[in-house]
Design a binder for these strands. Structure first.
Length: 420
DNA sequence: TCTGGGGTCCTAGGACCC
DNA sequence: TCTGGGGTCCTAGGACCC
């Protein structure tokens, strides 16, 4: 048996943890640039605030219902996530951290007989130790565990745990779940299934395997197996190294100024390089892209990207920034207001397996040592104090974040103040 | 004023090789 | 009339995830 543990309304719960007066009140968290709603407390959901709604469209709703609005604070969420995950490891020998707020637990080696009880214990421990509410779904495959988790939230809200312990309970859950709510079924597949008269997860189990294979490729085949209780999704107990690494942001406000765009590109290139060094990878090639705001249809649109190959795979900040700026030179065009620039590092290989080029002119070993020190310093200071010249210090392209909470758990200057 | 950011997997089709 | 065949690698695009 497998469990999926999912933090309820995670980002909203994190914010509320440090402002208990918001308990029972509507809370939302916005994406970068205070763009759209990406997390909602139950009370905010009840008002009818939808996931992904642009904030500017519902400012009146925020006003009317006195919704507490937060900019996203990933430093805080990341730290709380680490604490939740660490606590979960006490319960099972093997687990897979699936996302910032979810983990699959492998219960196949447990001698526990009452898994519902174990689920309740997990929930209580996380609430007690960290203060974040979680739900637990338990079933025989990952896809069913995901479904069980959702079912727990919908049908067993009070205890927050659902264990699909026998055939009847599995059937009940399958019949309850619409196809669009199945893990792995997105908009396109949901519409394909519905056009063919398949509406619930139970319906999916009743169609021939071949139909799924033919119409939804091996993805559909795997899904069909999983719904029949045959585990077909691989486990990743250790997070594998990323194959691509991307850093991109929208600008706080649109800009046509090439120097500002170049400064942002330099910083994103440096961020990519640091992320690669962290996982000991080097990129074989990289991509720079820029685009205008596609939502502003009345303005001239332009978007372009360029892929550049490295002679020798690299994770050196200076080299990557140089390529980024060269790439930007080629794709940048006057006369447009840009929304976003981004850097994608492609074809990542382990640092140790890097093929060196005969014509390499860079002392990579020396660079590596210098950057190792830079990484340590920047980590120690909690921000990038050591930077390349082209990165600048002014951050003229910076994000909007007008409702940012403190980094309560990771920065000594921002810890909670208690008045007595 | 104002619409996130970062990933993975799968397939089809072209390029290229012998 | 008739225009090989099989294999691999790469890329773009689609679909999905949180």
């Amino acid at each position: 048996m497998y469990a999926l543990v999912d933090c309820n309304n995670f980002y909203a719960s994190c914010e509320r943890l440090f402002q208990p007066r918001l308990e029972g009140k509507p809370v939302v968290v916005l994406s970068n640039n205070d763009g759209c709603v990406i997390a909602r407390s139950d009370e905010a959901k009840a008002i009818g605030i939808e996931m992904g709604t642009p904030a500017f469209k519902i400012e009146e709703v925020f006003e009317q219902y006195k919704v507490s609005v937060f900019s996203s604070n990933y430093t805080l969420y990341g730290d709380l996530s680490d604490r939740v995950m660490k606590t979960l490891t006490d319960f099972v020998p093997k687990m897979e951290v699936y996302s910032i707020d979810e983990s699959f637990l492998d219960m196949s080696e447990l001698i526990y007989t009452d898994l519902t009880k174990l689920g309740i214990e997990i929930r209580q421990t996380i609430k007690q130790n960290i203060g974040i509410p979680v739900s637990v779904g338990i079933a025989s495959t990952k896809t069913l565990a995901k479904m069980a988790n959702r079912y727990a939230k919908k049908k067993y809200k009070k205890i927050g745990v659902f264990y699909a312990a026998n055939k009847e309970l599995v059937q009940e859950m399958l019949a309850f779940t619409q196809v669009e709510d199945i893990w792995g079924v997105g908009r396109q597949y949901a519409s394909l299934l519905k056009r063919n008269g398949i509406h619930t997860a139970l319906d999916v189990t009743n169609i021939p395997e071949e139909w799924m294979r033919k119409n939804m490729t091996v993805v559909g085949q795997r899904l069909w197996n999983e719904l029949h209780g045959k585990a077909s999704v691989e486990w990743e107990y250790e997070a594998p190294a990323k194959k691509n690494i991307c850093t991109s942001r929208s600008f706080g406000k649109l800009t046509g100024d090439k120097t500002i765009i170049a400064e942002a590109a330099s910083n994103y290139a440096a961020a990519c390089a640091a992320k690669m060094r962290k996982q000991n990878s080097c990129a074989s090639s990289m991509c720079v892209f820029i685009n205008t705001n596609q939502h502003k249809i009345e303005q001239p649109q332009y978007s372009r990207s360029i892929v550049m190959e490295f002679q020798t795979p690299t994770n050196l900040t200076g080299e990557i920034i140089a390529y980024a700026l060269r790439g930007l030179d080629i794709i940048y065009k006057e006369g447009y207001l840009f929304k976003k620039v981004g850097i994608i590092m492609l074809g990542l290989v382990p640092e140790s397996q890097r093929q060196t080029s005969l014509f390499d002119t860079i002392d990579r070993e020396k660079n590596r040592m210098v950057l190792g020190t830079v990484d340590k310093l920047n980590k120690l200071m909690g921000k990038d104090v050591v930077r390349m010249a082209s990165q600048g210090y002014k951050r003229r392209y910076k994000l909007r974040a007008e409702h940012l909470s403190n980094r309560y758990t990771t920065n000594i200057n921002e810890i909670l103040n208690v008045k007595i």
